[in-house]
Design a protein around this nucleic acid. Structure first.
Lengths: 321, 321
DNA sequence: TTGAAAGCGCTAACAC
DNA sequence: GTGTTAGCGCTTTCAA
């Protein structure tokens, strides 16, 4: 591996000169003659010099590495990619740390590598387990303290898009199929607000959790008795369950009723018929994550970003009425 | 950040002693008294000492960081997770480098951080673009040189599982729907071998690429004239396309014909009806990736692993005949 | 403009 | 068993 001294030797200048040139400091403090600057730059290039960022970090005490601590569920790749690409744009790198050995061990690993910042995407349940000594860390972090680091996404406004779309397509009797859980409730709120805005009566059905999935036993009752024009689901996954049940019963969508999901999950792009849904901007979210932690690293503070609003993805499950 | 000297001072011993104790070297070369060992260990623990891995890497010239270079497509999260978890098991960390700025810039970044190893998951197209100077790198790497780093997966044997399953379910007239491309051809081979083993006549249809997807215009002809009991697709994505076309025509699956995919993509777990398919072990693949690069880092060589065979995922698209 | 020298946190050879 | 010392690749202060 070629070092600064090697360049200095070959170019016939001192190590300091090389350092100054390579760090662009010749423009400010130090005035180094144009030809020498060029000579050094060319020699470095020609020798294939690549600065050792670790040595650099040790001496400056500043690292451009950001640790992401998370369970890295399958759907998170776009988020990670967004964060990573934005990081690279700013000369930073991402180090991934899994929660496999617990949150405290994960933090320890981040410290061991003296990362410049930590972004944790973890449940508040885990936040509570963090060893207090890690909460007054010298390393800038987001997501370790309770109720920080929630990814910025406006559930309410995003859900509204779906309801607006259904109404615009001529549906009036729209049922929201939700869950008694925080995020589902926010989406429900968006639905209710739009319905009321149009003077329509909100109708809501709730599933309960049933070993990892949700129970949709009331489907037959809903279709036979409540007969909605359209069903807006709090999530794509629920919509898929409904689609499967309908397929079994040979009930066609959107012939019998229109269907709207939420999430724009990979399956919504492949299923038959293609599911109308709301895209959650995971990639953009990753970018924002980076900007937050970067601001914190650079200026010691970060501003809460305006939560993102999703995008309506029209599909084949919504009929024109 | 607390350092070794701080421990030495507090414990009243020398820096060397601390270093030896903390690196477990007191067991071999140096004999350090039991009470001192304990004293040092306790002091370190109590002061919340975390060794600086970067400083360590600089002086030993060995880094336990592995760079993964890839486009990080959405489906790759399980692979990354498998690799990461296995890495952590062995005290290593993963650094992700995107291909956003090109393969050479990605390699440069890996070098800049003096990573211990590089695993690139890139197309041979990109491998050809690599600056030759990076091919005689001092850093152990897999996937940079042409035709290395292919993830270990036995397409042929995995595809066989699907055909065997269809036959076992009573199907005889099975059509393989493939593509004139390498991986699809391997899967086709598996199908052909099983068909011949049972004395059945292989029948194959080929799609051609059509702006990013595949054309399935021959579907009607196949259903009307060739009338297969079952169709085995070279990939889930093709199966989904077929399912969508059938839905439009109100042709039911598996009533009219059985359908088998390949890949166990997220959509296959949600679509109506649930698609029978072959699981590609991405998580396991990630683990193997780690072991390969780790072996290379530790012993300068790695053995080709026996390619993994997928797992049959029964679904609702295959009927009992 | 340039060079010498100290220092970042750590390892390791060597003498005590 | 323990302390001294040099050195890893880099930055940065201070003189020249």
């Amino acid at each position: 591996m070629i070092r600064m001294v090697d360049i200095a030797k070959k170019a016939g200048v001192s190590r300091t000169t090389v350092s100054f040139v390579l760090n662009g400091r010749y423009k400010q403090d130090m005035k180094i003659s144009e030809p020498i600057v060029r000579l050094v730059l060319e020699t470095a290039e020609e020798m294939g010099y690549v600065k050792d960022e670790n040595a650099n970090a040790i001496v400056t005490g500043k690292s451009r590495v950001i640790a992401i601590i998370s369970a890295f569920d399958d759907y998170m790749m776009p988020t990670v990619r967004g964060c990573m690409e934005e990081a690279q744009e700013h000369g930073c790198m991402l180090k991934l740390i899994s929660l496999k050995d617990g949150i405290n061990e994960a933090i320890r690993k981040a410290i061991a590598f003296r990362v410049g910042g930590i972004y944790a995407i973890i449940r508040s349940q885990l936040q509570k387990q963090i060893d207090p000594k890690y909460l007054q860390l010298e390393i800038p972090s987001i997501g370790l303290k309770l109720h920080t680091g929630k990814m910025a996404f406006n559930q309410i406004e995003s859900a509204k898009l779906g309801t607006e779309y259904l109404i615009q397509k001529g549906h009036r009797k729209i049922l929201f199929w939700g869950l008694h859980e925080e995020i589902a409730k926010e989406r429900e709120l968006g639905y209710v607000q739009v319905m009321e805005k149009y003077g329509l009566k909100p109708e809501i059905a709730y599933s309960s959790r049933q070993n990892g999935s949700w129970n949709i036993d009331m489907l037959d009752d809903i279709l036979k008795n409540r007969k909605p024009d359209a069903i807006q689901c709090f999530s794509d996954l629920l919509a898929f369950k409904i689609m499967r049940e309908c397929y079994k019963r040979k009930i066609f969508i959107p012939d019998t009723f229109s269907l709207m999901g939420f999430g724009h999950t990979p399956a919504s792009r492949e299923c038959a018929p293609l599911l109308a849904t709301i895209d959650e901007p995971y990639f953009e979210t990753g970018k924002i994550m980076f900007h937050q932690i970067y601001e914190l690293m650079e200026h010691g503070t970060y501003k809460a970003y305006t939560p993102l609003i999703g995008t309506l993805i029209p599909g084949e499950t919504v009929a024109e009425k």
